[in-house]
Design a protein around this nucleic acid. Structure first.
Lengths: 189, 189, 189, 189
DNA sequence: CATGAATGAGAATTCATTCAT
DNA sequence: CATGAATGAATTCTCATTCAT
């Protein structure tokens, strides 16, 4: 019970404020739990953050796994992946942002490494999709992992700009990303 | 003299460690000046960071301004912009990363706002290039500012991955980005 | 427990050294608690000081309320008020001094304002006593609030001089103040 | 030249802000002089303050000396002394306040002692006037030095209240103080 | 005479973490 | 399971003072 309240509060606060601006006090207050309780369930701020992040990546993978299992044509698949990713991002903006970028910061190196590992696995996961999706068509020289990393960055940067600056509509966001991504990835488009 | 030493030390440390992991003590030590000297030249950590960031953006704009003044054909121009951006990024990796992403963090809101303003100006700058470059050709529906924001994110995310994971070569990095970017932007390609 | 130790230490140190010469380190050391403990119980030096001051005024009011409730003739009442005030002052010398005078200093304006409010309330409280006490007798033109403020200043300044210079006896102190105050206030004396 | 500018700036700033809130930087800026120049003319902040204070007392004494030399009847003399003191106070409010009260604070003990000496001399000066003025009449038991200290406190506290709270008029201020002071001091009134 | 860059000791505050209950 | 009072290391910032020019 307490554990869940803590996790929920953490997602909310880390999402809103980022890692550093979120203090254990804030989390305890938001979760309606005593500060000591945080340390009963988690070894520290780092582990708490790691838990959230791990869950975040799992969500991303689940979403995308769903898309893949639907067995659509490649173009539609990529559109769907982008869409899910963008929507998830818009929902948890800061959290996904942290996962993807801010990670570099002031987190214990050990935990940081594990989180980076998660991110890399996610990139591998995406790059496999790219590789497979293109094995049939002809493709320009393209490094799939770098491409996957780049795509993630693009999606997040554009979404972030959309959220923060309020420029464009949700549809334009999806379309702009697709317009850039699709011709690049789908040879036969 | 001192001021320069401080700026140099700051670039180095902010680049290596990010904003939060870099303490004023660290900077003073690295710069071989007394702690008070930092506050003689800058009003605080925030202003010091802002200075670095402002300089960074200026460098980016200068680089790109150079490219534009060379009056090459569009494709070559975009290739050059990407190349300069990537190279600058590779050189100042973390710093540019911070400029572009980490900004969200625990910086005084006022300063944060000014830095966000700089980033937005840079995005406007890029989106103008996109808009102009495409005015002649036929273009799919594309929101230039979102596209510019996305491009920056893609370049940085891919470069980051390249640096951190050592996957691929410098050429593959450039080529991968170009392969994604060019067909998307240049209709007549 | 800790809170009490902190309050006691603060009264002692603020009384002896004044607001600025008393550091949070000093207080922590005097109270035998860790520095962080101060901030667990009080939001900062300002709030700690405000607490002490508020308590001080409460003590003053309580003392004087007691006097009034004893329903003595006016002259005796004023004598008692002066006596209580002087005695309290002699006991907490510097603290009361700070409350009454030093306030002007380097305290956060917001807190300063609240403390000034307390002092003004105390002056109002005294001036009401003056006004009521004289409603029956004939009284020269006299602005009660200015008179109350003046009386406080006189008591404190004389007491301070007594403490610091060791001139006169405790009885002379009381008598001198009464000799000045009584004929001024009591028309029918 | 510089020295004068520094003294003027110091009077202004110490008067407005008190000792602690006034920094050497502030003084230098206000005086349009480099910080080092302050130390060319004065050995430090303490000496600078002492100079101001000494001048302040001299002014007080001069004012009162003038009154005394005018050879008026006792009542008029005391009225004049009060008036001069009050007017001087209203003009240099904070400065006189500091001289009289705030002195206790964070000033080097050595300098503090000298300033206290000045204040005591001023009290002696006043108490002599009191003693002489009453030698002829019959006087209740009254400790002249304590009375003098009390009078100063009363004048300042009432004036301060007048300034800060804007209660009453200038005339009421003078009258209220006189109404309290005169019957107390002048037996034959 | 005057400067202003540089100093460094000292101060307030934050916050992740511990631990007795 | 849960608590919350207590901790103390780390951090940012202030400011009187020094000194080479």
């Amino acid at each position: 019970m307490s554990r869940n309240k803590i996790v929920d509060a953490s997602v909310k606060l880390f999402s809103e404020l980022g890692y550093h601006r979120t203090s254990m006090d804030d989390i305890a207050k938001e979760a309606n739990v005593a500060k000591g309780t945080l340390y009963y369930h988690f070894s520290g701020k780092g582990e708490l953050f790691e838990t959230i992040v791990t869950d975040g990546f799992q969500m991303l993978k689940d979403q995308i796994g769903q898309v893949l299992s639907e067995n659509q044509p490649p173009e539609q698949q990529i559109r769907s992946i982008v869409q899910r990713h963008v929507e998830l991002f818009l929902q948890y903006s800061e959290l996904v942002h942290i996962i993807a970028n801010e990670i570099t910061n002031g987190i214990e190196p050990e935990i940081l490494e594990r989180i980076m590992g998660l991110k890399n696995k996610y990139i591998d996961f995406l790059s496999d999709i790219l590789r497979q999706g293109h094995e049939d068509g002809e493709l320009n020289k393209l490094h799939y992992e770098l491409a996957a990393a780049g795509l993630i960055g693009m999606i997040e940067s554009a979404s972030m700009y959309f959220i923060k600056q309020g420029k464009g509509t949700r549809e334009e966001l999806h379309e702009t990303i697709n317009t850039i991504v699709l011709p690049a990835l789908l040879r036969n488009l």
